[in-house]
Amino acid sequence: MSQEKQSLVDIWGDNVNLKDLLIAMAICVALALGGFIIAPGDDPQPLIFGLVGGVLGFIISSIIIKPKRVVEHVEEEES
């Protein structure tokens, strides 16, 4: 975390860091659109390349960005 604690924003039902979100969007858009454009063959090849690119982007972003959640496991007895 950076020294100055930055506020998260609530987008689409969960808290995100704006900078991380922009990074994830940039990676996914670049790979999806890039895959679509560079695909050498005819239909539906561009779409396949694009989808694979999007999923790759998702995996890369999942690795480099940490979820903004603190998960705690608690034991709870049923009464």
Binding site: I11, W12, D14, N15, V16, N17, D20, L21, I23, A24, M25, A26, I27, C28, V29, L31, A32, L33, G35, F36, G50, L51, G53, G54, V55, G57, F58, S61, S62, I65, K66, P67, K68, R69, V71
Partner: peptide, 20 residues
């Protein structure tokens, strides 16, 4: 899901699909 899937990546993925 909560520990390993960042919300940013999900939004990013949908943004990528929509732009494509």
């Amino acid at each position: 899901v909560f520990k390993f899937i960042p919300h940013e990546a999900l939004i990013g993925l949908f943004a990528g699909l929509v732009v494509m």
